[in-house]
């Protein structure tokens, strides 16, 4: 809020702010095109004020998601869901159902074609009609299968744990960071950070195609890929990898800097580590996601670090 600017009249600010919100509404309307994106870019380039107004509108949009995050509810019986959603033939054709209704008011099938997104710290479980189930971890974007993706899910970013069953007619396919992951009867975890993906197999086997190479991953194994190359398969601590599904974070002999990096994924705000030596200390810790700030108390009590709490969930560890 910079109403102190001597040059720009307040009503012009108000106009720019409103236009920025109009752009945001158009952009997220489901009908925005490449041409719209180009026009929006030109609009933002008109002045710093325009760019800032658009950033503000998006900040509000992000925070509306956080502010209206719904408490996690019990997963409904699958039969109930199928019956409730049975009304929508379109939804049935798409072959998946969102188990948790998005709203108390409209627990219906309209969001079925929508992509799913979880906010910071949110976890959500969805069930596919095929019988597979997917847990979405914090900050995850998942595109549902549609014709253009040839029935494949797409993990845009974040982390999912997938359970598929023998009864699938065809393998479940999920794309992540340019790789294709297929499974028939398996429990596995996929994590996607930018151009890098990590796949961990808990049960059964998973086939991965990436950049012209293929590999089959078996129980207890993990593989990562990025920049056109598959990395070697390694043994994984599957319990620790998948602990998030039970609302836990498990670290075994992990440098504190990595622990903090991981905790930052789940926590609004940011923990900043200003002490390098402390960051190298290896820690053994189990955190409950609902009480993630326990880590801060732990660092303070166990390592005697100095903690400074700032507004907005920013914590400085020194």
């Amino acid at each position: 809020m910079r109403e102190d600017d001597p040059i720009t009249p307040p009503d012009m600010r108000a106009t720019i702010k409103q236009e920025a919100q109009q752009w945001l509404v158009l952009l997220t309307s489901g009908r925005a095109t490449v041409a719209d994106a180009a026009a929006l870019k030109r609009w933002c380039e008109r002045s710093e004020l325009h760019a800032e107004a658009f950033a503000e509108a998006n900040l509000l949009w992000d925070n509306i998601a956080s502010a209206s995050r719904r408490p996690r509810r019990a997963v409904l019986n699958r039969r109930t869901i199928l019956a409730a959603a049975g009304a929508s033939a379109a939804a049935a054709a798409l072959g998946y159902f969102v188990v948790e209704p998005p709203l108390d008011l409209w627990p219906s099938a309209s969001e079925l074609r929508a992509d799913l997104r979880t906010a910071i710290g949110e976890r959500r479980r969805i069930a596919l009609q095929s019988g597979a189930s997917i847990d979405l971890n914090t900050r995850t974007s998942l595109n549902m299968p549609h014709e253009a993706s040839e029935g494949s899910l797409e993990l845009v970013s974040g982390e999912v744990a997938i359970v598929t069953s023998k009864s699938l007619d065809a393998p479940l396919t999920i794309m992540a960071a340019g790789g294709r992951i297929r499974a028939v009867d398996a429990h596995f975890n996929v994590r996607c950070e930018g151009v890098r993906a990590t796949v961990t197999c808990e049960r059964g086997s998973v086939a991965i195609d990436y950049s012209g190479n293929s590999v089959t991953l078996y129980e207890g194994r993990q593989i990562a890929y990025a920049q056109g190359a598959l990395e070697p398969v390694v043994a994984a601590d599957v319990g620790a990898v998948l602990a998030w599904r039970e609302g836990q974070l498990v670290f075994r002999q992990t440098p504190l800097s990595e622990v903090i990096g991981e905790v930052n994924r789940y926590r609004p705000g940011h923990i900043m580590l200003m002490n390098e030596a402390l960051g190298r200390r290896r820690v053994e810790v189990r955190l409950t996601l609902d009480r993630i700030d326990d880590l801060i108390a732990l660092i303070q009590d166990v390592y005697g670090a100095r903690i400074t709490q700032l507004p907005g969930g920013v914590v400085v560890v020194s």
Binding site: R31, E48, A55
Partner: peptide, 22 residues
């Protein structure tokens, strides 16, 4: 090309292009 609909990930990226302004 201009009439192609933006994908969800493109929209998300565009939404955050101006974050540096704040």
């Amino acid at each position: 090309k201009d009439n192609r609909k933006l994908t969800a990930s493109e929209i998300e990226a565009i939404r955050h292009t101006m974050d540096g302004a704040l």
